[in-house]
C-alpha cells in the first residue's frame, strides 16, 4: 500500500498513460484533452461569434466526462494517495537554478508557492503569468490541433509526421520560455 502513496516512477506512469489511450481507442474514441477547450467554448455559445465553434459539442460529451474524471482523479490522488504536501523530488541542479530565480519551495512542494499559493493571487504579476500562460496553452493547443495527449502520445503512437512537428514546436517554445524568458520574467 505504501508504494501507492509514494510518487510513481516513470516506468509505471508511462505504460499507464498508454493504457488510458488504449482504453479510449477500444471505446471507439481517441485520447486528446485539449479539444475539450473548444467544446466548452461551443457550450457557452461561442458559435455565435466564430464558425469554428459551430459544431455539436454534445457529440464530444464523452470527452468532457473524461475531463471531469481527470479532476476527480486529481482529488482522489491528492487526498487519498499522497502523503503531506506530496513534495516533488526534482534534481539538485534544478532546485539550485530555481532558488537563483527566487523560487523558495523547490523540492518541498508539488507546485511552486510563488505562483500557485492562494496568497500569491493578490500579486498582479502572478495573475498575469497564470492568465497569460493559460492563454498561450489554449491558443497554441487549438492552433496546433492538439496538445501533449493528442500529439505527443496519440499522434506519435500512430507515427504521424504532423504530431512530430507539433512536439518539436512544444520543445522549441518550452526551451525559449525557460532559458530565454524566465530570467526576464522572474
Amino acid at each position: 500500500m505504501n508504494i501507492l502513496l509514494e510518487p510513481w516512477p516513470w516506468y509505471v506512469s508511462g505504460p499507464l498513460i498508454a493504457l488510458v489511450m488504449f482504453l479510449l481507442i477500444f471505446m471507439g474514441k481517441k485520447f486528446g484533452m485539449s479539444s475539450n477547450l473548444e467544446s466548452m467554448c461551443s457550450m457557452c455559445g461561442a458559435g455565435k461569434r466564430a464558425d469554428y465553434f459551430n459544431f455539436d459539442w454534445r457529440a464530444k460529451r464523452w470527452n468532457l466526462i473524461v475531463m471531469l474524471g481527470a479532476a476527480i482523479g486529481g482529488f482522489v490522488a491528492a487526498h487519498f494517495l499522497s502523503v503531506g504536501a506530496a513534495p516533488v523530488d526534482i534534481s539538485a541542479e534544478t532546485v539550485k537554478s530555481l532558488e537563483s530565480l527566487g523560487f523558495q519551495s523547490a523540492g518541498e512542494a508539488y507546485l511552486p508557492d510563488r505562483l500557485f499559493a492562494v496568497e500569491a493571487l493578490t500579486e498582479p504579476k502572478t495573475l498575469i503569468i497564470l492568465l497569460g500562460g493559460g492563454l498561450l496553452i489554449g491558443f497554441g493547443a487549438r492552433y496546433a490541433a492538439g496538445c501533449t495527449s493528442g500529439h505527443a502520445i496519440s499522434g506519435l503512437s500512430n507515427l504521424q509526421l504532423p504530431s512530430l512537428i507539433a512536439v518539436i514546436g512544444f520543445f522549441i517554445g518550452g526551451l525559449i520560455m525557460i532559458h530565454l524568458l524566465f530570467p526576464l520574467i522572474f
Binding site: 484533452m33 475539450n36 507546485l111 492563454l135 498561450l136 496553452i137 496546433a144 500529439h151 525559449i176 520560455m177
Partner: peptide, 19 residues
C-alpha cells in the same frame, strides 16, 4: 503544427500544466 506547437510550448513551460 509548428507555430501552434511553439505557442503551446511557451505556455506549457510558463504555467507548468498542459490541458
Amino acid at each position: 503544427y509548428l507555430f501552434g506547437g511553439i505557442i503551446f510550448g511557451l505556455g506549457w513551460a510558463l504555467a507548468g500544466a498542459c490541458p
